[in-house]
Design a binder for these strands. Structure first.
Lengths: 195, 195
DNA sequence: TTAATTTGCTAACGACTGTTAGGCAAGCGA
DNA sequence: TCGCTTGCCTAACAGTCGTTAGCAAATTAA
């Protein structure tokens, strides 16, 4: 009846699945490969999980929750749009660097979700972007942000694309901490590369 | 003996394959799906191509050539690093917008290349980034660019990530032309979002 | 010790994978 | 009309896919 012990093995499977989905892709990863990586036969996995889809679903929606958490902190801890933007970047970067593998699966493999999870995922992602746009809009209206062509949609894409590329090159053993990376990204984002 | 007629059909197959690889991914696209999209049986494809790998290879390396072409123009038409950067962005955006589907395959599906093409591809990509970094370095040394932490590696990632996210949202029927997008990106990149 | 739970196994299912072999019909230049 | 090429077909190959059934060993709880 203890839920912690069964969670252990399931967590191991999820971690290994995350790693494999990340570097081979969901579709190119077989349950037999996943099992082999855990030193087990493929059929044995089904004592712990119900399907391959469930693994992808768990990874994608857990990360979605974390990104939403970071967004909500940014929205609720300050009234200053620029401080909120800083908080958003720091939170976003912390999620990305805490589990880069899961982040990459979240960013790149979500399209392999089956319905109805796929639609739910897309809706959540859109809701996230809407709120980021609103945050940028507030900054532009207050005069503390200068959006290109006054277009918060464009600015939001620019912001998120700059952040979301991070897990493709981030190495956890690198010299920079998550906060240092976030600081650099914030500076670069706000000031640009112009001399 | 006329090489143009057989090329026609092969080009159709390549275009359809590009579209399918883009929205399902290489591994999740079967030759039977590709054939069905062309109104043909799977086996018939092999009169025109030699393998599924060949399709991926052609797409990835053609795009690599185009990106390198844009880079070379940027390197050779001006001595001003900042003008070269502008040219690079415009060229890069033009490639991305001219064939967004192929661009997304290039950016997202290259990892499914088989050896030795995979290693060759990675090497080319690295060579590309090295040259972009050199371009940014020159700008920083000349004082016309201000790189975050004076790190051209970081700046290059920032630049390319901002550009490479474009094909995920770009719609060819949108209001913005490729040059308008490139101008906005250039402005945003150089000036940032700071008010 | 007994009972229940967890974890894994072998074997197999039906479906699907990329690809090949071999043939047939239409359109072509000679 | 002949022969050749192009384009597509059916049939099949050997292998892999996710998943289920049924059973056994190990671990844990009472």
């Amino acid at each position: 009846m203890a839920p912690t012990v069964p969670e252990k093995r399931k967590a191991q499977i999820r971690r290994q699945a995350t790693a494999l989905f990340q570097d081979r892709g969901f579709a190119a990863t077989s349950m037999r490969e996943l099992a082999a990586a855990l030193g087990v036969e493929a059929a044995s996995l089904y004592s712990h999980i119900s399907s391959k889809q469930e693994l992808l679903h768990d990874i994608c929606f857990r990360l979605a929750d974390e990104f939403f958490g970071a967004l909500e902190i940014a929205e609720h801890t300050t009234n200053s749009p620029i401080d909120a933007l800083r908080l958003l970047i720091h939170g976003h970067v912390r999620v990305l660097t805490t589990d880069p593998a899961a982040s990459q699966v979240f960013l790149a493999e979500w399209r392999h979700l089956a319905e109805p999870a796929l639609t739910a995922f897309i809706d959540r992602r859109e809701a996230y972007e809407v709120r980021v746009r609103a945050l940028l809009r507030r900054g532009a209206d207050a005069g503390t942000l200068r959006l290109p062509a006054n277009d918060e949609r464009f600015a939001a894409l620019w912001l998120l694309s700059g952040l979301n590329w991070l897990p493709t090159w981030y190495k956890p053993d690198g010299k920079l901490t998550a906060d240092e990376i976030a600081e650099r990204l914030t500076t670069t984002l706000l000031q640009g590369l112009g001399g």
